[in-house]
């Protein structure tokens, strides 16, 4: 089974965000694989262990994102593709177009991605890629099973099925348990498809020392947008950033003193009289 995992390099979740000269300060920042993408990658590696195949990681970003792809190779991915983002204008439309073009060339059975990236948090690009490639999707997966479709002898023998044979049934079917607002939903969809990973899907592995050594010899392809099949309209950003802002400062309030009973009474009273909540 041929799989592509879309990954993004993000700031570590423990990093503070400092703005300087209208940009986010990247000095001394620790970068990681976006945690949700790491679940997607781990799942791809486990599916490969079970069903065989290949795992390609693909990212679109600045050249520093190569470190993240190298980590993904050390975890066990077979191959990596980095699309240099210059010329794409930091916009979901253009980045999705570039990633979709790269994924299309790889012709995967399954595309995996994180539910969202913890930096921009839009959760838009993976599903835009799915739409562009006309793939069905299952979002926020907590469990993924892949079944290889077997042609039943009865179906093969039936002459009425000659028409069906011209549009062959897919080789694989995915059964996905996904996290929704209304509960745990189990869906079934044919591959090729795109599935996004929710936290809790698995426990990602750490790169092993032999994995790190092997990763140095694995292929990491650098692509520029000129090498992808993109139209001029694909490269036209649809949105732009006007300004970066720090969150409104929040001062510490007061600590309520006294016995537990007095503290609880004071809090309940203040929430009603001062905060006007009840």
């Amino acid at each position: 089974m041929n799989m592509v995992v879309l990954v993004k390099q993000t700031f570590d979740t423990e990093e503070k965000i400092e703005l300087a000269h209208g940009a986010i300060n990247e000095d001394h920042v620790k970068f990681i694989i976006n945690p949700y993408d790491e679940y997607a990658l781990e799942e791809a590696l486990r599916l490969r262990e079970k069903h065989g195949g290949r795992v390609t990681v693909a990212a679109c970003g600045p050249s520093r994102a190569a470190e993240t792809l190298r980590t993904a190779l050390a975890m066990g991915a077979d191959e990596a593709v980095l699309i240099e983002e210059s010329g794409l204008g930091e916009d979901g439309h253009t980045i999705a177009a570039a990633l979709a073009a790269a994924v299309k060339e790889l012709a995967p059975d399954l595309v995996l991605a994180g539910l969202f990236a913890i930096d921009r948090g839009a959760g838009s690009i993976a599903l835009q890629v799915a739409e562009r490639l006309r793939l069905p999707h299952a979002a926020a997966a907590l469990k993924i099973e892949i079944h290889r479709n077997v042609e039943t002898p009865a179906a093969a023998a039936s002459p009425a099925d000659t028409e069906l044979a011209q549009s062959p049934s897919p080789d694989f079917t995915a059964v996905v348990q996904r996290d929704t607002e209304w509960g745990l939903e189990t869906v079934q969809l044919p591959l090729p498809a795109l599935i996004t990973a929710q936290q809790g899907l698995n426990e990602p592995r750490y790169p092993s020392l032999p994995g790190i050594m092997k990763a140095k010899r694995k292929a990491l392809h650098h692509l520029t947008i000129a090498e992808l099949d993109l139209t001029p309209d694909d490269l036209n950003p649809r949105t732009e950033r006007l300004a970066l802002l720090s969150p409104p400062p929040r001062a510490a309030g007061r600590k309520l003193a006294g016995t537990p009973e007095e503290q609880a009474d004071a809090l309940a009273g203040l929430l009603r009289s001062e905060a006007k909540l009840f």
């Binding site: 950033r241 970066l244 969150p247």
Partner: peptide, 20 residues
């Protein structure tokens, strides 16, 4: 449009470009 980045550690103001 104002929207959070890094889950609210920062915010950005964005606009749409014409034509789409």
């Amino acid at each position: 449009f104002t929207r959070p980045l890094y889950a609210g550690k920062a915010f950005e103001r964005r606009r749409f470009l014409p034509g789409a």
